Amino acid sequence: MGRNADAVDEGVAIALAAARLSVKNAILVSTISLGESFDPQHFTGTARDALIALADEQDAASDAMSRARKAAWGRHTQPHGTHDYRDRDVRNLRRRAKQYAGVAKALRALAEDSEQLRDLVERARGAAWQDVETNLQGRLRVEAMRPEQDPDYEKMRDARMQALRLVDLQKLSAQARRKRKAAAGETTGAPS
């Protein structure tokens, strides 16, 4: 029983990490892209939906293992691939189906627990803030850094100069040509 319980606990932990990532992304989109204020109540539905979707995936995996177990029953030939199960795999497939079903049941219970949902949203908010903070620190470090403070300045200088010549100056030149053509079209009265 310990092996099944451990597998279910591990599956729930992995699923919670996936749900947290999903809620974190929803928080980032809502607050940064859409400019909305963070409201934990707004994201409890997102957290519940994420947990239910993951539980549905686990139920589907459990059903797949049950079908594979039934198909493997009584087959004693050599398998032709990784998922070509035989009679000797029946016990393992039964255990895997139970573990998937156990994870699904635990996730559904979490999805109905308002305290667990609030905790999931709060952890996702913390992860979202960590992403924003890391991004800001990186940008401030790079944009505010002076050449003598950058340990890779000399090593990367040639690549930056090449990018300036091949990309930035080419873009600037093309932009200037478009402006000249547009200005020439306006002075001659030709439609642009």
Rank of each mutant, 00 (worst) to 15 (best):
G2A: 10
R3N: 10
N4C: 05
D6P: 02
D6E: 14
V8P: 02
V8H: 01
E10T: 07
E10R: 11
G11L: 01
A13T: 13
I14Q: 14
A15N: 00
L16W: 02
A17G: 13
R20Y: 01
I27D: 00
T31Y: 01
I32W: 03
S33R: 07
G35F: 03
S37V: 06
S37Q: 09
D39S: 04
Q41S: 10
Q41H: 08
Q41R: 10
T44A: 01
A47W: 02
R48W: 04
A50H: 00
L51A: 03
I52Y: 02
L54K: 10
Q58E: 13
D59L: 14
A61K: 14
S62Y: 01
D63S: 11
A64D: 13
A68E: 05
R69L: 07
A71E: 14
H76A: 06
Q78L: 09
P79C: 06
H80S: 11
H80R: 14
G81T: 04
H83D: 15
D84K: 03
R88E: 11
R91M: 08
N92D: 08
L93G: 01
R94Q: 06
R96A: 12
Q99W: 03
Y100I: 00
K105S: 14
A106V: 02
E112P: 03
D113M: 13
D113G: 12
R118T: 10
A124H: 02
A124M: 01
R125M: 05
G126M: 06
A128G: 03
T134H: 11
L136F: 11
Q137C: 04
R139Y: 13
R139I: 12
V142E: 12
E143W: 12
M145H: 05
M145S: 15
P147A: 04
Q149V: 04
P151G: 03
E154R: 12
M156T: 12
R160S: 01
R160M: 01
R160K: 05
M161T: 13
Q162A: 15
A163R: 14
L169P: 08
L169G: 08
L169Y: 12
Q170D: 14
S173G: 13
A176R: 09
R177N: 09
R178M: 09
K179H: 06
A183K: 12
A183Q: 08
T188D: 04
T188G: 00
G189D: 04
A190S: 13
A190Q: 12
P191C: 05
